[in-house]
Simulated scan of single mutants.
Amino acid sequence: MITAFTSFTLPKPITREEARAIFLSTAPKYRDVPGLFQKIYVLSEDGATVGGVYLWNSRAEAEAMYTDSWREFVREKYNTDATVTYFESPVMVDNVAQKILSDG
């Protein structure tokens, strides 16, 4: 499994309510994406940075998402550029499903 962190520093901070509305407007774009297990939207306490934490089946499936088209979508939506950082995620604890998952 792969965890990807995306982040973008906004030109002007936003409130939690503004972020929630924006996130809800983009959330449907991430439904049924091949290889994507979860996406969590994040907002910094000062409202200046937004992004996401994504859990992917593989690096290839993650990279298939973060294309030039996706980067342009982010640029148009938030008026800033995104950064993407990848991490190996060999084990995940899922307390909702009461499972410990491993990619091995």
Rank of each mutant, 00 (worst) to 15 (best):
M1L: 13
T3I: 09
A4I: 03
S7H: 12
S7Y: 12
F8P: 01
T9I: 11
L10S: 13
P11D: 06
P11N: 10
P13S: 11
P13V: 10
P13A: 08
I14L: 08
I14G: 09
T15G: 09
E17L: 05
R20Q: 13
I22C: 04
F23T: 01
A27Q: 12
P28M: 08
P28N: 10
K29T: 08
Y30H: 11
V33S: 05
G35V: 06
G35Q: 08
F37K: 00
F37P: 00
S44K: 03
S44T: 15
E45S: 02
A48Q: 15
V53E: 02
Y54G: 00
W56D: 03
N57K: 15
S58R: 10
S58E: 07
R59G: 06
Y66E: 01
Y66A: 00
Y66V: 02
Y66G: 01
D68C: 09
S69G: 12
E72H: 10
F73T: 12
R75W: 08
R75C: 08
Y78P: 07
T80N: 03
T80K: 00
D81Y: 06
D81R: 12
A82W: 04
A82E: 07
Y86H: 08
E88L: 12
E88R: 10
E88Q: 08
E88C: 13
S89F: 01
P90A: 13
V96E: 13
A97M: 15
K99Y: 11
L101I: 14
D103T: 14
